[in-house]
Amino acid sequence: MPDLRELYQEVILDHQKRPRNFRRLEEANRAAEGYNPLCGDRVNVYLDVQDGVVRNVGFQGSGCAISTASASMMTESVKGKTEAEAKALFERFHDLVTGKSAPGAAAPGLGKLTVFSGVRDYPVRVKCATLAWHTLRAALEGNDKEPVATE
């Protein structure tokens, strides 16, 4: 039986209660909206990208603890990264939460994001953990025509 504390780690609960960079970025030059039709979670990701580098990032929305904490920690981890680095980080994060890679193996570069490794025991919650990341990728690719859906 998976341990609940593995899923709801202190860091995750902290970010859920006090999400970082939880604001609309006035200087944003890229943005996208994400939506999880399964549970109604919504997230808007705002980026200020200069010379291929994510200078600043913000988000807004409503969602469960996993999706809010994931969005919050994502904003911290991609700030200062190049577009390619940010996308690569999503790939590794995705492998971590879907259980494609062992927590240890995926750890290089993931840093604090490894607290989401518990999600791999809760397949229905993978979409919560990746919603903000899907939205980030859409924003980076300039795909802001319609909301990104996880379904």
Partner: peptide, 13 residues
């Protein structure tokens, strides 16, 4: 302050 999705996961356990 607690999202229904989180309630559902914990009750499931």
């Amino acid at each position: 302050g607690i999202h229904p999705h989180d309630i559902g996961t914990i009750l499931d356990q």
